[in-house]
Design a protein around this nucleic acid. Structure first.
Lengths: 237, 237
DNA sequence: CGTACTCTTGACTCTAATCAAAGTTGGTGG
DNA sequence: CCACCAACTTTGATTAGAGTCAAGAGTACG
């Protein structure tokens, strides 16, 4: 079960360890929702635990406080698409209509803060600064989504895998690490990239054999950044 | 060349013929940007003409007034991804960072209204209603984008084509037509769905042979709505 | 009426999926 | 502590779905 921690305990949760969120610049800082601290409820989720079910009534949205969360969409025959991996500072579900179109599950043990969507809207209505930050956040999500459209629509398997490593590299660099720690399983990666587990493995192996990366289970070290960039169709400027 | 019509002529452009925009509910009505009428410039674009180039400085955003516009991303080797098809009422480029990550081109002769992005932001800052409408519009774009992630990541060729027809059907129904008029070429459709022209043709042919649709060049009549829904993995509720 | 498109169909190829099996790793309990 | 088990990852062999290459059929337009 999801354990809910009452607002009174929140002070221990608020100073978040991590800053930049998402893949694109301009993402939200934890401070964005500070004005809403009073109405938020901190929720703890264990590994693989469901935080929001696909189809849930869209009463709340969620701010990732710690850990990694995946958003998922299941098709009726079991095919799965991972929408995004969320990291501290990322926001989920503010834009749902009446139901959440994707579910959210903890990739690692995670802490999230839950806010009534209505209170977000109300805050945005009375606080233009907040509204602007929300727009900025949203703009980043839209851009990231378009980038993934290109990835899923037009990139080959190994290009997708390289792009994914570059993206996670940005994420990890934001966390100040020198290597990439992949908290998610191969299966999550496959469903994120529109591939199968086997293809993801083979891609990683190929890059390893070419000396571009070193892989050890969930840790990846980028040995040849330039080659990885090229393999992921990174545009230089 | 793009022909620019000065604001003085705008009164003839403003009463827009079409209401609902995009694929998801909650999209913007033309009236959304009415408060900005004074700073908008009406621009006319011929078929296949570029309205915004990928990489252009992101000074302006665009409201589609009439016609159909595609957003496109070109990879260095020529692979192309169509981001979305825009119809009257749809907004493009408000969320660009410093450059437009996608270009915009007229699918049919089109009229768009160009606004400085800064004035959008300024209006949102001083008019909470406008800010809210912008959020609603954005939320719709995010949801539609996630839907396409599933389409591109997990659906088969014929499922993608069926989904596309259903989407265009919604669009056309919004325009009050009894059939689907596809203003874009097979090539545009292919690049929208992450397929090739040939695969799109074969898919359409297959549906035609099964009696699900009737195709004549750019017109499509849906003969078996239920079967098309099933073929596109439409979720009933 | 011919020319230049776009669209459609066919034959073949190739990338990634599927099916299958052999390592690894981590957790649990004897 | 170590053995066993279950889950995850990796590798290999084969298949299938979509891409590529090529040619023909419609259309639109001058």
């Amino acid at each position: 079960m999801l354990s809910t921690i009452q607002p009174s305990e929140r002070q221990s949760m608020l100073p978040m360890p991590v800053a930049a969120a998402g893949f694109a610049a301009g993402a939200a800082r934890p401070s964005v929702l500070e004005p809403l601290a009073g109405v938020g409820v901190t929720v703890r989720a264990e590994r693989d635990e469901e935080i929001v079910a696909q189809g849930d009534a869209a009463g709340y949205c969620y701010l990732i406080v710690s850990g990694c969360v995946r958003t998922v969409r299941l098709m009726e025959d079991g095919r799965r698409q991972v929408g995004e991996f969320l990291f501290p500072g990322d926001l989920f579900g503010w834009d749902a209509l009446e139901e959440h179109d994707f579910g959210a599950e903890a990739v690692t043990p995670a802490t999230v803060r839950r806010y009534p969507r209505r209170s977000l809207d109300a805050l945005a209505d009375r606080d233009p600064d907040f509204a602007q930050q929300l727009r900025r956040l949203t703009a980043g999500q839209l851009r990231a989504g378009r980038e993934r459209l290109v990835l899923l629509g037009r990139k080959t398997a190994s290009e997708r895998i390289a792009s994914f490593l570059l993206e996670m590299g940005r994420q990890m660099r934001a966390e100040g690490k020198g290597f990439i720690e992949l908290p998610m399983s191969r299966s999550d990666i496959a469903d994120y990239l529109g591939l199968t587990i086997e293809t993801v493995c083979r891609g990683l192996t190929q890059f390893r054999r070419h000396g571009i990366i070193a892989v050890e289970r969930s840790k990846v070290v980028v040995r040849d950044r330039r080659a990885l960039g090229a393999a992921g169709c990174e545009v230089l400027h």
